[in-house]
């Protein structure tokens, strides 16, 4: 069983890293693009299905609820 957790900065949080990347990306592509926001990606292997366990891990360890949202994907 594999779970994927994606952690993203909340919409209300400024993401200076994303801004810096966007600037370089636009220079490289020679065109304007929309916002870039930088998050984190986790692959977690588990011996059995346990959504609650992964939700707990994602909310209490992998993300900080003050500044980040997360999404869990089952594979």
């Amino acid at each position: 069983m594999k779970y994927i957790v994606i952690v993203k900065p909340k919409k209300t949080i400024l993401d200076p890293q994303g801004k810096a990347i966007k600037k370089v990306a636009e220079r490289y592509l020679q065109r304007e693009i929309g916002e870039i926001r930088v998050g984190k990606y986790f692959e977690i292997e588990l011996d059995r299905e346990d959504d609650e366990l992964i939700e707990r891990l994602a909310s209490k360890v992998l993300s900080n609820e003050i500044i980040e949202d997360f999404e869990v994907i089952k594979r």
Binding site: L14, A20, N64, I67
Partner: peptide, 16 residues
């Protein structure tokens, strides 16, 4: 802050 003993959190410096 991460431990919840203080409020809020510390982000990357705005100038990175």
């Amino acid at each position: 802050t991460e431990s919840g003993l203080l409020k809020g959190t510390l982000l990357k410096n705005s100038n990175l």
